[in-house]
Simulated assay, not measured.
Amino acid sequence: MLELDTEAFEALVVDELDRLPDEMVDGLDNLIFVVEDRPENGTLDTLGLYDGVALTERDRYGFGEMPDRIIVYREPHLAACETLDELADEIHTTLVHEIAHFYGIDDERLHELGWA
């Protein structure tokens, strides 16, 4: 298992966010990115989570709405990767996957596209 403290992991997440294409991130509205150690159930099988209402499912969305969240789980990523390069790639894939959920793309379509 790869070892990386929270601060270094968060920096890697920010680096990978910066590498995403503008077309992907320009439409992100009322969304925050959060790093947590593990999901509430303690599993190491979940790398990330989109917590919100997909753009395609929003009826009326206005002022005062709590922001949607994309959570990146540190310990599952570290358990799944052996090198920093592999970790960066996995974080990148997780970010793309969860951002896709924000835009309303489901897991089946993500599998077809190779992002799941």
Rank of each mutant, 00 (worst) to 15 (best):
M1Q: 11
T6C: 08
T6V: 11
A8T: 08
F9A: 01
E10C: 12
E10A: 09
E10M: 10
A11N: 11
A11E: 12
L12I: 06
V13Q: 03
V14F: 09
D15I: 05
D15A: 12
D15M: 06
L17N: 01
L17I: 01
R19I: 10
R19M: 08
P21I: 02
M24I: 08
N30P: 06
N30Y: 02
L31E: 00
F33I: 03
V34Y: 06
V34C: 01
E36A: 07
E36N: 05
E36F: 06
P39R: 00
G42A: 10
G48W: 00
L49E: 12
A54K: 02
L55W: 13
L55R: 12
E57Q: 15
R58I: 13
D59G: 14
G62K: 08
E65A: 13
M66F: 15
M66N: 15
P67S: 03
D68L: 09
D68N: 05
D68Q: 07
D68H: 09
R69K: 14
R74Y: 05
H77L: 07
L78M: 04
A79R: 10
T83F: 10
T83C: 10
L84N: 14
E90D: 15
E90W: 07
I91F: 00
T93A: 15
T93Q: 13
T94M: 02
H97K: 01
I99Y: 01
A100M: 13
A100K: 15
H101N: 06
F102M: 01
